[in-house]
Amino acid sequence: MSGISNYVAPRSLDEAAELLRAGNVTLLAGGTDLMPQSRNGRTQLRPTLMSIRRVAELRGISEAAGNVRIGALTTISELRDSVLVRERLQALWQACDRFASDQIRNAATIGGNICNASPAGDTLVPLLVLDAQVELASKSNGTLATRAVPIADFLLGPGQTARAATEILSGIVLALPPRHFISSFFKFGTRPALDISLISVGLAARRAGNALHDVRVAFGAVAPRPIRAPAAEAALEGKALDDGVIAVAAAAAEAEIHPISDVRASDWYRREMVRNMFTRVLAHVRDR
């Protein structure tokens, strides 16, 4: 017995934006967050349920003018199968590889992962270190318009984003990383499959010899939203990775996180794991 009185499935972005403008709409993509959340009462469905799955413009991964564009409806499986993602956006690929199970990956979309804005959302940490922008489409003044927002500004808190009620997340845009650019994502869960990140670590940098430049570090599940860690970045910037630098960066990271205690782990353990796993990720990069 839900509050849904109307189901719509537009075929174009324009049509979808128009329907959204009318208000009182819940957007449905893969449904892997929405369905469980509406059943357990965490999300109230609005009178109109709008599936965006028929909107072809929201699909696909493309590359043009040094930019990669990922449609919001791209599934985690599609990202995992993409050669471009695997070879050039390793951190994102690793996140998709450790994401849920086949069944979920086939349904779950990257747009849904972003809009759900879970502190533990697995694609968010790679998108942070890849400096991605999200693209929002709406027809608030009658014509279809888009705006781009850096992912770091888009994510506000658990389940909270900068998306206006009339906007659809249409895609993600990021600059194709230069050569010698490395990126890496490490999901720490307590088991190897079907697990929610207890903490996660993202790292991206340009590598010159043994030194890292343009370093970006992000962590998941240690604050109300996935966060960048500027002090850890600064500790690594331009430096050759050795045990001393790694230890300083790990200590800096610890000061930037605010984990909580819940049924999955204590804040103490999350802190320890950020330190140990960040150290492990850096050592892995050093030894590679």
């Binding site: 088991r191 190897p192 499959a193 079907l194 697990d195 999955r264």
Partner: peptide, 22 residues
């Protein structure tokens, strides 16, 4: 996990059965 008489993890998400790779 039972805290103050209340089961805190009544689902397979947080009550972890062993999965195949383990």
């Amino acid at each position: 996990i039972v805290e103050n008489g209340v089961v805190r993890n009544p689902s397979f998400r947080d009550y972890k059965l062993v999965t195949a790779p383990e």
